[in-house]
Simulated scan of single mutants.
Amino acid sequence: MLGSIDAELKLVVAGNHDVSLDEAFCAELRKSALSRSTHEDSYAAVASQAARTMWLGKRARDVGVTYLEEGMHQFKLRSGAKFTVYASPYTSFFCDWAFPYAAHEDRFNPSSASLSDADNIAHNPIPDRSDNVIDIMVTHGPPFDRLDRTDTGDSVGCPHLLRATMRARPRLHCFGHIHEGWGAERVRWAADADEVSHVAQSTQEWKTGGYERGIESAERISVNREKMLTERAVFVDLSKRSGVALEAGGETLMVNAAIMDVQYSPTNAAWVVSLDSPVS
């Protein structure tokens, strides 16, 4: 399916349902499944290796698919446009799925920027904007209070990821995981966002208002449902040609691109976003 899409570059990140791509998780499953036969354990190991071979192998490369491991990635297109992507498949522990971390664990910030009560486990922390400009962030899960509300109204995104996003301030942060959160919003960061994203406070203090001073405004992108059904997508143009270009470093377009709705039916439209990129 991805191979049939007319695009020069197709980037893929795993998520909590992609169990076979999380080798550590599969290994733990095999250890804990004492009732499984040796044959079943062997099959699980083979399936895990086969999944990674498919996404990282020649077949994927030949159709322009790049599987993103957690960390930083740089790309250059034939047009000369270049951009940097930070990717992570990890989400806060939920129902024993793949790529998990505990709610009190910070996977995205250096220890110097972690919340005071967080256990820092970051192997590939997101750098500050001043250190290494990130154009695009692709994570499976959402940051806290950004398109992360469940059908019960709870915000279940990651507070540590929000802190990291505020530090990095990419042009685009794309995620999914919370199906009900489908949508997009244009976030303008406050002038003192750097200070806010480094101030010492607990996770509870951060979630109950500590982060708010770092966000000047958040404007939800309106969706024309009739047009969306006709075009089978939602188009957002924030390039210079639109007259409402995104301010690099000052704004981030947040997109919850979950195709599945809350009933696990693939009915949500895709988002097609136009942004300016630096040219080498």
Rank of each mutant, 00 (worst) to 15 (best):
Gly249Pro: 05
Trp271Tyr: 10
Arg220Glu: 06
Trp271Glu: 01
Val46Arg: 14
Ala47Tyr: 06
Gly176His: 00
Ala60Lys: 01
Glu185Ala: 10
Val279Asp: 13
Ala113Leu: 12
Asp131Glu: 12
Asn120Cys: 11
Val196Phe: 09
Ala122Leu: 06
Pro125Asn: 08
Cys26Trp: 07
Gly3Cys: 06
Asp192Thr: 07
Val85Tyr: 03
Ala248Pro: 09
Ala14Ser: 10
Asn256Met: 02
Ser274Ile: 04
Ala44Gln: 11
Ile259Cys: 15
Leu253His: 02
Ser42Phe: 09
Arg129Trp: 06
Ala233Val: 05
Val272Lys: 13
Gly15Tyr: 03
Ala245Tyr: 02
Ser277Asp: 04
His173Leu: 01
Val244Phe: 15
Glu216Leu: 08
Lys227Gln: 13
Pro100Asp: 06
Ser274Asn: 11
Arg188Val: 09
Glu212Val: 06
Ala24Val: 07
Asp117Met: 06
Ile221Phe: 11
Gly210Asp: 08
Leu162Thr: 04
Gly214Val: 05
His173Asp: 04
Ser32Pro: 02
Arg169Leu: 06
Phe93Val: 03
Glu219Met: 12
Ser114Gly: 12
Ala122Trp: 01
Arg78Glu: 11
Gly250His: 07
Phe83Gly: 00
Ser111Glu: 14
Arg220His: 10
Ala27Arg: 14
Ala102Tyr: 15
Gln74Asn: 14
Glu205Val: 08
Ala184Val: 00
Thr208Trp: 15
Phe108Lys: 01
Val273Tyr: 02
Ala24Pro: 03
Asp106Phe: 01
Asp151Tyr: 14
Arg163Cys: 05
Trp189Ala: 00
Val272Trp: 13
Val63Cys: 13
Gly64Asp: 02
Val156Gly: 00
Arg61Phe: 12
Ala113Asp: 11
Lys227Glu: 14
Val255Gly: 01
Ser88Asn: 04
Glu105Asp: 13
Gly181Pro: 04
Asp18Arg: 04
Ser35Val: 12
